[in-house]
Design a protein around this nucleic acid. Structure first.
Lengths: 293, 293, 293
DNA sequence: ATAGGTTTTGTCAAGCTTTTGTACAT
DNA sequence: ATGTACAAAAGCTTGACAAAACCTAT
């Protein structure tokens, strides 16, 4: 459930209540603690034992082993082993895995906490390149394999979008070159584009973000209005670009265009006169930023 | 003249009559006046108290609070307060206008700054109800009239979404009842739903947000998984709900459903057995929060 | 204030009524307050407890936990957590106050959480200008008045420095103009300078941060090497600038110098040929960024 | 498992103050 | 009508107490 597992602060039990919940008499609980270190409860100011709710699990594991006929010492050893949690060496891979778990469980606070930890330990670039984008990619694959529900996918996207937009705050400011970011009509996947914008701003660019499903006709006006140095369009599906190819070609006569995402093929770029950003958002943003015009 | 006097005293009650109408003894009425300033009656030439008929209402309000168990002092304070609505600060309108200007100009930092000022000067509820939502509504109208380009509309939406998602951080946490928020298939406008979720969380609820264009089939699973107390669906167009009516009806047999947004018609709610949230996101969130189950 | 709102709308309860509504005897309510701080009611002029209606919820939460078998102390802890957990969106003033409380209590996790909340709801500019810098200023005043210990001041400073350094990560990158930031010899207060650097970077500048107590001789070399567009020096005390006046004057012949902080007097700026940044770090960074050279 | 001591927590009492409805003299 | 008075009801603080729950050690 949502709350039971949520927090370490979910409510500490005194020995009586633990006894009631497990059916093991307090004296015996103390004996197991003394003899096998089965539990190491906190203590109240006055010395009372205070057990975490998870202790119930360990006691039950102990009971199960006993029921199988093991000796108490042996049972305790196994029960201890079962719950042993490796302390987190916060490599980013581990954090990505934890992020995935949290999102699969619709556990928003935990997912946010993982994000916080990632951002406090790694640079924004690294978090985007090595955590967020791979995670999204993996999420897509799992979705195709039917391993995640649409609800889970939506939940994850929405949370990640919130964090990326948070990182993006203020990205229209400064004095650097200006980029307009948008997805072509019909294209709704904009998270990669968001990541690209964040990195671009980190490299000194200003960003005007129009987001998913943006009609081509409106781009020229916006580009002129903000004095854009480049218009970046991103799509997962090449079809979106194809459908907009005519408008693209026309737009490219007046503005510098870059196409990004899996849908941006070399052929299309050549045909429309646009620059193709074939790599990941972070790398391509960096490349784009490097040869500013 | 007789007339003048009659007009002046017309409808005015003396203390005996007021007492008779309210059942409060004259002595006590005087005590309430002396101690709490509950009433400030006119005086006749001879010094008699002359009460306006509305005084009866105030006395009754006082009695009602007393019946609820409040102290006399508290009851009087509330009875006095009743009717003196706090004047809505006009300055938020100015800020809304400035927000509009900034967004029209693609001026992201300025728009963010306006948001900052709004949030530091007003409650989140007020910012949502009196600034963000009216602005979005106005934006929609201007778009229909062709006064804003799609690019401007996208830019504004994306920025506002970022702010709302920022306010939403942590909304899955806490210990209150749980709501699932989503838009039916085909519906992309989720900003109102976001606002609703924010207010809901502020009232102690936990929120799992699935966002726009969510297939109905996936909702039941998610609802069960998080132990949802209610599923809120929002759509601007009634058509989206109609298309999902069958699934809605079925879902409503197992979960509590609420329909929000302009597309949520009374007829549809009745037909599917869902609750209809006909008002604005802030008010309806409050209403929903009030009768938590 | 928060209670103003609650008071206005709801009506405060005396202990008897609260007891009646919850079924908990007044004596016990007082005991819970005394022992666990479960409630902190307002007081009437004469000293009677006046409870907000929401208190009923908290009492009920307490009762629920008790029914689950938890000790009173634990139950109270959870009931308190639950009430405070719906991280209510709060204005920045409230958050600053909470930050102060957390830091005074050496409560690092809570302080970090407050920071997170501020950053999720407000822009970096706003957090620096309206929260961090006022807080530091206030902290200085309280320290002068002996209201905070040196330990508290250190704890607060170092935590804030950590957060600012977090925000500053990666600020040497990009392609914008370059600023060197340093404090003159003897000057240790660099938090304002850090804030200035953060805003500067947000405006597209690259920042080389040399920090407190930097010998003047090293500046020229560094400035030449990184091609600095400006050198910003900050000091709280004018004395530090005075002592370095000679070097400053010389430096200003070859580089653009800006003096910031309370120690940056107009006279000194004139005498040394430096630009004076008289305002707060955020505003001045913006000004500086605007007239880049 | 028992014994002997400690902590926790609900309850109560004593003595005093505040609040509030009612009464009464002017 | 006014001003004052009064007493019942409700509350406050301090301090204490005892049953229940828990501790350690034997």
């Amino acid at each position: 459930m949502y709350d039971a597992k949520a927090m370490a602060s979910e409510g500490l039990l005194r020995i009586g209540e633990l006894s009631r919940r497990t059916g093991v008499k307090p004296d015996l609980l103390r004996a197991w603690e003394r003899r096998y270190g089965l539990l190491e409860p906190e203590r109240s100011a006055g010395g009372f034992r205070l057990y975490a709710p998870a202790s119930v699990d360990r006691i039950e594991a102990m009971q199960e082993q006993l029921a199988r006929g093991l000796s108490a010492a042996e049972a305790a050893r196994l029960a201890l082993l079962e719950g042993s949690e490796p302390t987190r060496s916060a490599s980013i891979d581990v954090l990505v895995a934890e992020l995935g778990d949290a999102l699969d469980d619709y556990d928003e606070p935990r997912a946010q906490a993982v994000f916080d930890r990632m951002l406090s330990a790694f640079s924004v670039d690294a978090v985007l390149r090595d955590a967020v984008l791979p995670f999204l990619h993996e999420l897509g694959l799992r979705w195709e394999r039917g391993e995640v529900s649409v609800a889970q996918e939506h939940f994850a996207s929405s949370l990640i979008r919130g964090r990326l937009l948070g990182l993006a705050r203020g990205w229209g400011g400064g004095a650097g070159p200006v980029a307009i970011l948008a997805c072509p009509p019909g294209e709704e996947h904009d998270l990669g584009l968001l990541a690209l914008g964040i990195v671009l701003h980190d490299r000194g660019w200003r960003v005007a973000y129009l987001g998913p499903d943006t009609p081509m006709e409106t781009l020229a006006g916006a580009a002129t209005r903000v004095g854009a140095n480049v218009i970046v369009l991103a799509a997962v599906s090449a079809k979106r670009f194809e459908e907009a190819a005519g408008a693209l070609k026309h737009l490219a006569t007046r503005h510098r265009i870059a196409l990004a995402g899996p849908g941006a093929t070399e052929a299309l770029a050549k045909r429309t006169g646009a620059l193709r950003l074939a790599g990941g958002p972070v790398d391509e943003a960096e490349r784009l930023a490097a040869d500013r015009r």
